[in-house]
Design a binder for these strands. Structure first.
Lengths: 344, 344
DNA sequence: CACTTTTTTGCATACGTATTCAAAAAAATG
DNA sequence: CATTTTTTTGAATACGTATGCAAAAAAGTG
């Protein structure tokens, strides 16, 4: 005996009967802008109150209305940084009167399974975080008229909206900053190699170096984790000639890098500069005081939500891609350029 | 012109027409256990494939079926610890074929607003994390036949299922451990005062001390944040006589406490022992190596999901409260009892 | 094959709400 | 007041799916 709503869920018909009006009147009471007199509205509300009536959004959506449900697809929800993003999304969406249907996904493969499920729920829109969208899937969303916005990820092939931080520019800024600080042997510790975020950051960094006629001195692979940063730095420091600055693809690895450096008897930033990316909460801790790029999460999320809501409420063929600049946050983990005044 | 599913979403009727069968046949194809021949099933599936048909769960739920939607009510989604809980919940629920409707709430007041909204979506069940449930609200859920499970929080007055860590027992274990380690002046740094978690932990700790004829030596208030732990510890250390051990209501504050102690020139654990609660990711970092109580998140969440799913699928009046023990994780932030062998 | 039993099928209806349409009521106009 | 215009109202229907029921088909039985 699966599911058996123990009791009669009270419907608009019940309310109508009690109020002595038609069911349509009840419906109109809850439809902003519908034609209904104040007198009737009050009668209905009174009856509704008495019965504890709440309109059934599910049923409402059947007759052509929106579900006001947004599918949020995410990997690594447990990661502190993504958690902040999720929190911002759900909050912002709620402000716009939308609710979040959470799709916890392991990888792009899981996406291909999860998305059709989300579509079954007739979501009004989809937020895609840290996952890439294949063309066929995108096509299906389009066919169903469900707008999509990709967050911190974009693809030029697939026609889909996108909002993200300008990772390349941020990385370029870091390169400039390190160059001005007189560093000459710069290493990069990569995040997950196939993540577009990692690629953008590396591209920006090497471009920044190239603009000054320099090249990457060394490169290690990581996976965005503390341990990866710690280990990779160990390998870098074991070289005959050490790098004098390390750019880690994210803050967690940078923090690992700092711990490793100190454990190896080096002073940061005197002997080695370390910079990261994201401006995670811990980057501000005195112990690390990490120079990094602040991803303005609230601004990013707000923009993404606005793009999505706009696409939902006034459908169009236009596709928008928004790149929002990150902000260089200068702290004490990297040697300062001479005469530099610190910001935040 | 708000919302306008650009095209005709393909329905069971369309599939039926193409396959040359009745709409009922299509419905039965997607209803496990329904009476339908293999031949017809194949015809339907072929047609469905061709049209890209997906059953509409929303509509399905209208005719008495479950929505397979679970409302997850949470505060502080952005907090790393809660994020892990949320991740575990959504994953576990998905394994059971349920999806998560996320309700981001600021406080108990927000709950009172959010819950009716969730109920509008005809959720099959509700998970309540770090929030308390008032009797009237609980009554409404009950009236609608929507099972609820509270996580890491329980109330004896309100008849509702509950699963959580045995905070009091964990705190008692910590008290024992510190006592055996020869500590005599123990301080407690509280989390948010009115959180039941905080109260349980303090109760367990003082009970543990009382069992050995001791009392709390000092007490400070905090709010679970790193900064609060840091500051509160500063106040404790400024006393004429210092505590020799501090139990912080959670790991974040404990980490703040350690940093403060070191900054004040004390050695941990030689001069001061610090213990926490939760076993957050950072507790394991060599720098902190925090002795703490591990909250078995996966086990807790699994239990909660099972309680909820069970309540949904075989309704009953019975109410279950489950307390799951935490595990003392001995690391190096607290002096060991003589002859103690370290565990994890 | 004639008959009974079982399985499969389609028809009709229900679920809760929104909306079109035409009728009714109210308001405005002369 | 008679007439026109506007607003409000209820009846009927649609949305997409599930299911009780009876008819039809298939399978089993002697």
């Amino acid at each position: 005996m699966p599911k058996k709503r123990t009791n009669d869920t009270v419907s608009s018909v019940d309310v109508a009967r009690l109020a002595g009006v038609s069911q349509a009147a009840v419906s109109r009471t809850y439809t902003p802008g519908a034609s209904i007199s104040e007198k009737m509205r009050q009668k209905v509300l009174a009856a509704a109150e008495q019965l504890g009536y709440q309109p059934n959004i599910i049923a409402r959506s059947l007759s052509g209305k929106a579900t006001r449900l947004i599918g949020i697809v995410m990997v690594k929800i447990g990661d502190p940084f993504y958690a902040r993003i999720l929190a911002a999304f759900s909050r912002k969406l709620q402000e716009h009167g939308y609710w979040s249907l959470l799709l916890n996904v392991n990888d792009d493969l899981g996406l291909e399974e999860a998305l059709p499920q989300a579509l079954q729920y007739q979501v009004d829109g989809i937020v895609l975080t840290s996952a890439t969208l294949s063309s066929p899937i995108a096509a299906r969303c389009a066919a169903m008229g469900v707008p999509v916005v990709m967050f911190n990820r974009y693809s030029l092939e697939v026609a889909v909206n996108s909002v993200g931080c300008d990772h390349a520019q941020g990385a370029r800024d870091l390169a400039d900053f390190l160059l001005k600080g007189g560093h000459r042997r710069m290493a990069y510790i990569a995040g997950e190699e196939n993540s577009s975020t990692n690629q953008e950051r590396e591209r920006g960094f090497t471009e920044g170096l190239a603009a000054a006629g320099q090249r990457l001195f060394a490169r290690e692979s990581g996976d965005y984790s503390y341990a990866a940063g710690f280990d990779a730095t160990g390998r870098l420091l074991a070289r005959p000639e050490r790098p004098d600055a390390i750019f880690c693809a994210n803050d967690w690895m940078a923090i690992g890098a700092i711990d490793q450096a100190r454990q190896s008897g080096l002073k940061v930033p005197e002997d080695l500069s370390v910079v990261g990316f994201d401006d995670a909460a811990m980057a501000a801790w005195p112990r690390y005081s990490l120079t990094t790029i602040n991803q303005p999460i609230d601004k990013l999320v707000m923009a993404a939500v606005e793009v999505l809501v706009n696409a939902i409420e006034s459908p169009t063929e236009d596709r928008v891609i928004k790149l929002i600049p990150g902000r260089l946050v200068v702290r004490n983990s990297a040697r300062l350029p001479v005469g530099h005044k610190k910001s935040a």
